[in-house]
Write a protein that binds this DNA or RNA. Structure first.
Length: 706
RNA sequence: AGCGGGAUGGGAUAGCCAGGAGAUUCCGCCGGGCUCAUAACCCGGAGAUCGGUGGUUCAAAUCCACUUCCCGCUACCA
């Protein structure tokens, strides 16, 4: 790997975060895949030898759980999405040189090999940890296979996270009353031997690595907390069937351990490169040049929610196993929809399939996603903004310039006028080329698109200032010159715009009758001579009418409303890496017709009930806890004393209206700490809406409830 | 709570690391002109105390401290 400006003599690979095979693709995903696709195409334009690879992420607990619920095997469940992704990406001209998946032979083999290399190098050790078990089935229950009661806030929670209550991460063994999500059986905790990767020993290496890493600011800085603080070793195995068996000397996976999905997922970057290399031939592209012997330029484009995995665990693995470290990690921001967080479970999303079904050209969305904001910035999508940028920039500026220039050229000269391009225009094209090159080296996908659009803007100014339509009579020679320049600008535009809008660029390239393939053309082709003769041009981009936008908005709003009303909250479609799931707006949540939870079968004794000390209280003060979405810090008067209690009700109640309310407090619950705030007791509330419990008479504050 | 990223006219964005003229550019808005074209371009205009407070300095969008809001991460969700 070098840190020379692109293009380098080395071989590059561009990757994007693997889509997790358990849900449909939406604009949030597309942003990353398009961004990386643009970057890779732009690298090719610079003359960099590169490949763009990716694959579906097939393993992990969520897929196993969702597959079990759907009554199919995890493999066929994940494969179905894998096929869908494989078909969808080309429709957006996201063209991978190879698209594999983490469960295929190449990745399975390579993953085991790398884990063995880690073992051989002494980076793996065994340790006993607590793991949930279903004693009836004799099955281990990792992560989301367990549900129970959050020990911190008492809410119903998944084994790994209190997802509906306080949002806190739970360590195995922490959750109370654990039960299996598969069978509903009560779960118990047992000691199990797991494998750990000694990330802590690579601290020195990672410190140096992070200082030379290129990419976005957040990717370079976020991992410093870990790398410059205390690095913990990483558990790389899970007790489950679905995944890559841990490599063992005798009979792999005999003890039922599979590798943690975050081990085999990034290795797919290598495996996919290898598959490409094997198909293309090592002369064309050799994966070992990239991944071995400190060889190539590795650029990872990811969502900013998975920075640590790509800047800590992943380079640690690569280094320990003797592979090349990444040159850059570029972390994209999220997509919001009409200013609000994209939410798949609430159907507040623009789906990939939906966009295509509406009949829009992929380049329009590509342009919007690639250039609406910096890569690192969050980008808002709305149909109005989409329309505005398409109409003014793609139609008005770029499309209009090409169309008026080529139409004029064709009508007056039957093609390209027979003269040389002026120095001024050739110089301006060079400027655009330089801006393009600089953008690539800044990992600025936006800049790549801007370079082209600014050149088109210049073209409009130029043709307008020169007025060739007047010159045709007044000064025919000058008119030829101007139109010759405009045709050349169109050629340059096709080249420069290809990464962002490959199909539009191809059509423009064909319209000027240029030779060869614009996708293969390098930046130098911006100066290539167009055909002496070409036909009448077509409009490159079509305007989006206002009625269309109104219609699309209506559809979107209706859909969100529908999904809010028939939300059963049970089947939260799980979100993958690029979602900014929004749980902050409690507006449309009029949940009705909910199936009540079944009454618990287990009876408790009167004594057990007596152990509960419930008290009437009155909220004295209430304030949101900073940094927590859901938590509110309350001071509650319970007669004998005033207690500080933390409750997960921020989105469900007007915090300012809480003081003065009479409530019921579980007073003898053990203390816990949430977001650094001690909670001494628990506020009782009913259901998803956290309907607060109170007394209907005027029992004094402090009264014990029996 | 800790850490990271962000906040710049109505929208988007540059400038910040290496402090200096009236704060960049694009879109939108208002008025006027022009017309080969999918109405682009030209001229003029309104609109930002650069999230806030305090400090350093001759000089702060830029450096320092504190603070507000949005987003992400916090290691066994991917």
């Amino acid at each position: 790997m070098s840190h020379e400006p692109f293009p380098t003599d080395g071989t590059a690979v561009v990757t994007c975060g693997l889509p997790y095979a358990n849900g449909d693709l939406h604009v949030g995903h597309l942003r990353g895949y398009v961004g990386a696709d643009v970057f890779d195409r732009a690298l090719r334009k610079l003359g960099q030898r590169t490949a763009y690879v990716c694959g579906s992420d097939m393993h992990g607990t969520p897929i196993a759980v969702n597959a079990a619920e759907a009554g199919v095997s995890p493999e066929s469940f994940a494969l179905e999405y894998h096929e869908q992704y494989r078909e969808t990406f080309p429709k957006f001209d996201v063209e991978f040189d190879n698209y594999g998946h983490t469960d295929d032979g190449t990745n399975t083999e390579l993953t085991r090999e790398i884990v063995r290399e880690l073992e051989d190098a002494g980076y793996v050790y065994e340790k006993e940890i607590m793991v949930a078990f279903d004693p009836e089935e004799g099955q281990a229950l990792p992560d989301r296979f367990v549900e129970g009661t959050c020990p911190y806030c008492g809410a119903r929670a998944r084994g790994d996270e209190c997802d509906e209550g306080c949002g806190r991460h739970l360590e195995p063994g922490e959750i109370e009353d654990p039960e299996s999500t598969v069978t509903g059986n009560p779960a118990e905790y047992r000691e199990r031997t797991h494998k750990f990767f000694r990330v802590s020993e690579l601290q020195e290496y990672l410190r140096e690595f992070i200082d030379r890493l290129e990419g976005t600011e957040n990717a370079k800085n976020q991992p410093r907390e870990w790398i410059e603080g205390e690095l913990r070793d990483w558990c790389i195995t899970r007790d489950m069937d679905w995944g890559i068996d841990y490599p063992g000397e005798a009979g792999e996976g005999e003890d039922g351990l599979v590798l943690y999905v975050w081990v085999d997922a990034p290795i797919e970057y290598i495996a996919s490169t290898k598959q490409y290399s094997e198909r293309a031939g090592a002369d064309e592209y050799d994966w070992e040049d990239v991944w071995k012997d400190d060889g190539g330029e590795i650029v990872h484009v990811i969502g900013r929610d998975i920075i640590q995995h790509h800047t800590v665990f992943w380079p640690a693995m690569l280094h320990a196993a003797g592979y090349t470290e990444p040159r850059a990690v570029a972390a994209t921001g999220f997509i919001t929809i009409n200013g609000k967080g994209l939410s798949t479970s609430r159907n507040r999303a623009i789906w990939a399939r939906e966009y295509l079904d509406e009949g829009f050209h992929p380049d329009l969305l590509r342009y919007y996603l690639a250039t609406n904001g910096g890569l690192q910035q969050d980008v808002d999508f709305s149909w109005e903004k989409f329309q505005s940028r398409v109409n003014s920039e793609l139609v008005g500026t770029l499309g209009n310039f090409a169309y008026r220039s080529l139409l004029f050229a064709q009508r007056n000269y039957g093609g390209t006028p027979d003269c040389e391009v002026s120095e001024a225009v050739a110089g301006r094209i060079d400027e655009a080329v330089a801006a393009f090159r600089e953008a690539v080296n800044d990992y600025s996908v936006r800049g790549v698109g801007q370079a082209a659009l600014e050149l088109a803007r210049y073209g409009n100014e130029y043709i307008q200032a020169e007025e060739p339509w007047n010159l045709v009579d007044e000064d025919p020679e000058r008119a030829e010159q101007v139109i010759r320049d405009c045709v050349q600008l169109s050629v340059a535009l096709a080249v420069l715009f290809e990464p962002v809008a490959p199909d539009t660029a191809e059509r423009l390239w064909e319209q000027v009758g240029a030779d060869g393939d614009v996708h293969e053309a390098s930046l130098g082709a911006a100066h290539d001579a167009p055909a002496a003769e070409f036909g009448e041009p077509d409009e490159l981009v079509t305007k989006i009418e206002d009625e269309r936008v109104a219609e699309l908005n209506e559809k979107l709003e209706q859909r969100i409303a529908e999904s809010a009303s028939d939300e059963e909250s049970a089947d939260d479609t799980d979100d993958t890496d690029t979602d900014a799931d929004d749980d902050t707006d409690a507006d449309t949540d009029d949940t009705t017709d909910m199936d009540p939870e079944p009454i618990a079968d287990d009876r408790i004794s009167f004594d057990e009930f007596q152990a509960l000390d419930l008290r009437v209280g009155r909220i004295e003060t209430a304030e949101p806890i900073e940094g927590a979405d859901k938590l509110v810090r309350l001071e509650v008067d319970i007669g004998v004393e005033t207690r500080q209690v933390v409750a997960g009700i921020r989105q469900l109640h007007d915090v300012d209206a809480l003081p003065g309310k009479r409530v019921v407090i579980a007073a003898n619950l053990e203390k816990s700490e949430l977001f650094g705030v001690e909670s001494n007791g628990m506020l009782l509330a009913a259901g998803e809406e956290a309907d607060l419990l109170t007394t209907h008479g005027d029992a004094p504050v402090g009264t014990k409830i029996r």
